[in-house]
Design a protein around this nucleic acid. Structure first.
Lengths: 190, 190
DNA sequence: TATTTGAGTGAACGTTCGTTCATTCATATA
DNA sequence: TATATGAATGAACGAACGTTCACTCAAATA
């Protein structure tokens, strides 16, 4: 990956960010390996060669976007903190995480990253680190809400369930999505 | 897709099957779109042009393998039928489905098909049909084991959870896998 | 036995791919 | 102001891609 820090001009950093966003659009629409570097350059309104001033190669661009996707969940983790009663915090978390997971763009990107993780250890590592953060934030709430069972595997299952349900209903109608959300709350909350 | 029926010579049908299996190996190792037709031909010990006597194009080969993967779960559905008590049937099902879902090759292929489903309606349809069969088989057991809650969304969540856990632990050590399996049984069985 | 059929082969086609390069140009630095 | 820096450009490169083709040949059909 190219150096992130360093005093580059503001416009250069903005351009770089714009390329990342353009690449994300392409990847969501066509997938990592069906998207060409030319597609990304065109989407970003930059020349083919110019793109290589910002990224070493296509793989670095994929890795950067996969990392970004992982970081984007910091807002969801926040729903689990604070002084609200555990039931309330868990309810907020389920709603927030399910909403994120069931967004179309997010579902597509998650599927893409999952498949990529199977062969790219760097991406798998990024995904694992982020998931552990979610589990850690979930642990104290699970210990209270689901007593008498090992909290970590239970927390993992909660995440598995929300993620799986999210992807499954991402292209379904509102009614199905609401039903899924209700079913999640119904089962996870005591 | 090429005609499946018709009186082809037995050796030709065997060769076709061999190509499918070789393609599956390639797809698991490299992914759908990183695998070239030449890779498949080489793996199957057939010439490049000869492969096109059996399949119209690469897409047809992907579709056939995705369909095969869906059909392979008929054995798992059988665990839910019979006269055994519902707890026993559910327990058998969880063990069988989790074992299938957490196999490395299966996990990779599932991730690949998931990503492909997001853009290929045919593959998505095949996946949906197969999942509905699982849900239908699960319904009567869920109605007994999880009374007082809508059975279909609950059955979907059970599948989401087992599939997600399977993929997650596919590359973990035996201890982690056992813990996941225990956690599944612990939560789903009453 | 003569003929038709279909599966085998690998060279060849046209396209697209990721990446590099010489060059231009605007901006920051001296 | 003169100079150095790095970002922008699109042509060019070699490799790889999916697919087609003319062809060979063994086996089924007549």
């Amino acid at each position: 990956m190219q150096e992130k820090a360093g005093k580059r001009s503001a416009t250069t950093m903005a351009r770089r960010k714009h390329i990342v966003e353009s690449a994300a659009l392409c990847f969501i629409e066509q997938g990592f390996h069906q998207t060409s570097v030319r597609d990304i350059a065109k989407q970003a309104n930059i020349s083919l060669g110019g793109l290589y001033n910002h990224f070493e190669n296509k793989t670095a661009l994929i890795a950067e976007i996969a990392a970004l996707e992982a970081e984007d969940l910091s807002g969801v983790v926040k729903t689990l903190t604070g002084n609200a009663p555990p039931q309330k915090r868990m309810q907020r978390f389920i709603n927030a995480y399910f909403k994120a997971a069931s967004g179309k763009a997010n579902a597509i990107m998650t599927a893409e990253i999952m498949a990529e993780s199977m062969r790219n250890p760097d991406i798998a590592k990024g995904y694992a680190v982020n998931r552990q953060a979610l589990v850690d934030a979930l642990l104290p709430v699970v210990e209270i809400l689901h007593p008498g069972t090992p909290p970590e595997p239970r927390a993992q299952l909660i995440l598995d369930m929300i993620e799986g349900a999210g992807i499954r209903v991402a292209f379904e109608d509102t009614k199905t999505r609401k039903a899924a959300r209700t079913a999640l709350l119904d089962w996870i909350l005591p």
